[in-house]
Design a protein around this nucleic acid. Structure first.
Ligand code: ZN
Length: 379
DNA sequence: AATGCCGGGGA
DNA sequence: TCCCCGGCATT
């Protein structure tokens, strides 16, 4: 019953632990989610991650366990229309790339990237500890060699206390050798599939907010759109904390079929052209979105995200369907306090069945599998 | 129709 | 004890 044990092995008792877990370090939570991969956070400042639990901070060098990443993604999915891990990654990377050009590195939010583990099916056959870098990585080469060395000392809770002894066999500690900048850059932004960008493509910006999907041609316009319509803030650009960067993504639109692309990208809900502004709690009737691998590959988001990250999602059954609950903001820069974080909208009970879906019944807690009262998502 | 889960039952 | 499910309340 190790962290990365296959599904058919005996279940870990921590599966039935109630949420939220409150770890000292976000990496200390064992949870056998699959695929057995971890994610490295690269950011200059310590980030609060309320989506991972109260007072949980994510700092540069933290390895996000799959559960953590999933929860971060899940948190995002509360507000982002695309229920796809790829979306989060693309936003992460987009944010990083956008802000990397600025002088104020404090504005950088986070870039979560994949690190491979020796037990990962992706790198089976590779020597443990190696990062299985892909031969070609041109797309992100221009990115600044951001310091990706392990620096968990930014907070006192940076103890890499994986609880399970079996984790010793896996690179649970930040062992990936990200010492050199070139290797780090290679690893962080390596693009296994060289993307050939056609001349006839135009970069558009798509709002990822739930049931919005607005596409604009300028990033500033999109930021303003998100800030005013969704976040309910002032339109002042200079007072922005950059949160809106997490809610839109780039889009490569073929100019030749621009009209077709736009028509297919506009939200298909003519009744609600104006999405509800935060913090309106909406109960949407979104159809269950179960992302198939083919869809992810062909998703426009994939074009703006490193493809190796996308493949992590596509190559494994990592999708969890239909998450719709509307909760509070989840990623906040350290220091910035959000208003009205107080009350969770009571009543709505999302349990394992709904969160994971029938097709992922083995992810449910024991009680849910037995049709008993859920012990993971307690009321 | 979907979800949450109590009570009951079988191995 | 572990596990499953009929059925009902709730949405
Ligand atoms: Zn449960």
């Amino acid at each position: 019953a190790s962290f990365f044990s296959p599904l058919n092995s005996s279940r870990d008792s921590s599966l039935d632990a109630p949420l939220p877990w409150m770890p000292h370090c976000p990496i200390s939570i064992p949870f056998p989610l699959y695929p057995p991969t971890c994610f490295l956070v690269d950011c200059s400042s310590v980030l609060l991650a309320p989506g991972l639990g109260p007072d949980v901070k994510v700092a540069c060098g933290h390895l996000l366990a799959p559960l953590l990443l999933w929860r971060a993604w899940w948190s995002y999915s509360q507000r982002i229309s695309k229920l796809d891990l790829t979306a989060v990654f693309s936003v992460f990377c987009l944010s990083f790339r956008k802000l990397s050009g600025k002088a104020g590195i404090d504005e950088v939010m986070a870039a979560a990237v994949l690190t491979s583990l020796s037990t990962s099916p992706l790198v089976l056959g590779n020597p443990p500890g190696t990062l299985s870098p892909e031969p070609s990585c041109e797309a992100w080469k221009e990115g600044p060699a951001m310091s990706s060395s392990y620096s968990s000392s930014s907070n006192n809770s940076g103890d890499w206390n994986w609880d399970l002894p079996s984790d010793r066999s896996t690179p649970s500690t930040p062992s990936p050798p990200l010492s050199t900048d070139t290797e780090a850059t290679h690893f962080l932004f390596g693009d296994p599939i060289p993307r050939k960008r056609k001349n006839s493509t135009k970069v558009m910006f798509k709002c990822l907010w739930k049931s919005c999907g607005k596409v604009l041609s300028s990033s500033s316009g999109m930021q303003k759109h998100i800030r005013t319509v969704h976040l309910g803030r002032k339109a002042d650009l200079d007072q922005s904390d950059g949160e809106e960067d997490f809610y839109y993504t780039e889009l490569d639109v073929n100019v030749d079929s621009l009209t077709d692309g736009l028509s297919s990208l506009t939200p298909v809900s003519p009744t609600s052209s104006v999405p509800p502004a935060f913090p309106v709690v909406e109960v949407q009737r979104t159809p269950p979105v179960l992302v198939k691998p083919e869809d992810s590959v062909e998703s426009p988001l994939s074009h703006s995200a490193p493809t190796n990250l996308c493949h992590v999602h596509t190559d494994h059954a990592y999708q969890v369907g239909h998450v719709e609950k509307q909760v509070r903001p989840h990623w906040v820069r350290s220091g910035a306090c959000h208003p009205d974080l107080g009350s969770q909208p009571r009543g709505e009970a999302k349990k394992c069945r709904k969160v994971y879906g029938m097709e992922n019944r083995d992810m449910w807690c024991t009680a849910c599998r037995w049709k008993k009262a859920c012990q993971r998502f307690v009321d």
